[in-house]
Design a protein around this nucleic acid. Sequence first.
DNA 1: TCTTTCAGTCAACACTTGTTCACTGAAAAT
DNA 2: ATTTTCAGTGAACAAGTGTTGACTGAAAGA
Lengths: 207, 207
Amino acid sequence: MQTQTREEKKRQTRKQLMDAALTLTGSGRHFSSISLREVAKNAGVVPTSFYRHFSDMEELGLNIIDDLGLMLRKLMRTARQHEDYFEAQARNSVEVYAEYVCAHKNYFFFMEQVRTGGSSALRKAIRNELKYFSNELASDIRPLAQLSSTDDTDLDIICQLIVSTVFECTIDLLDHIETNPAYLDTYIEHTLKKLRCVWLGATSWQS
Amino acid sequence: MQTQTREEKKRQTRKQLMDAALTLTGSGRHFSSISLREVAKNAGVVPTSFYRHFSDMEELGLNIIDDLGLMLRKLMRTARQHEDYFEAQARNSVEVYAEYVCAHKNYFFFMEQVRTGGSSALRKAIRNELKYFSNELASDIRPLAQLSSTDDTDLDIICQLIVSTVFECTIDLLDHIETNPAYLDTYIEHTLKKLRCVWLGATSWQS
DNA sequence: TCTTTCAGTCAACACTTGTTCACTGAAAAT
DNA sequence: ATTTTCAGTGAACAAGTGTTGACTGAAAGA
């Protein structure tokens, strides 16, 4: 069954390379300490083939971030439901988030690692994704009456706070979930409490 | 001047090794991609000498975290001033924090890197330092009348939120401060706004 | 059909890596 | 004064690194 066109085959090895890199990062290694040769080997390909797809590891990383971005957008679409009540919306969002983290551990491991420990280009790319996330949130909640006395710049900052509160201890979730699956609920409840606290502040904010 | 006792000399090279590692992390490289040989070379010492002080890079890292812990405690003591008014206390704390970040860039670079991207032992060690930080905060503000309707566990969570809010975008500060020193003020004002928002929520919290 | 394209292979390169071992020489202990 | 201790040296190792250039063979295009 030689049903594979050349283009398909190329896309496939490309994906294998990216998957190999993600698997390695997910297994406790840091992305910046992973060698091109290791990635190639784990993808079942000779080192020189790597160059047919990426010029170096950084470019591989940037492409992973692109995929990560797509995943985050899907996550947002799933979580968004335009409920008016904060509690319901927040609970749903955090649950969806936690679900995604568990379903795509390697991506989130990569993200947490690279956000603070990647090359400056990689850090910047991740920062952009998070910025997009918080901008979306801002335009979602901007119309709410409870936020009418918050001006745009303050709302932006508050949205950054909300986003970083959710993302911030993802690494803790990833660390604990391996040994103790019950931590998932703890994470959800703790995060919700934090969000409630922020929301309480946001709705009584006077710009 | 052979005034150096053997012990002193040893302590000195030990410090040189740790400083070399910190300098390398501060210059954009990730700690986990730095080799033992590089550290030795930058410390002006032969690779084999490294083993007289640390068994491997991870142990070096743990020792750096110990020093980092000492620094954080000093920072806390400087920031703490038992003001009753939130605004004054918060502003002072954030300013002291930002000052420390600028004065000890390498330590904070290392901390940000390792918290999410170090070996699990290193991550755990950093987590402990942050936990200590938020525990101190909790016992500091526990007596405040405005928090009387917040129970202990909720207060803990809120303190984690406060601490992570301050630490969270340290990497952004470190990234921007190189090219644009004016970002320091932006960072301080943004962080203060976030803290005010959290504080507003915390003081109207009902456990 | 013949020619071109190009993902993947193989061998080789100069270099860096962690770790070993036997060593030196001055400070510390006797 | 003599012996012991031990931080730092230097050479050597097996293994891994990024990158090169010339190659193969099947799919795509003519």
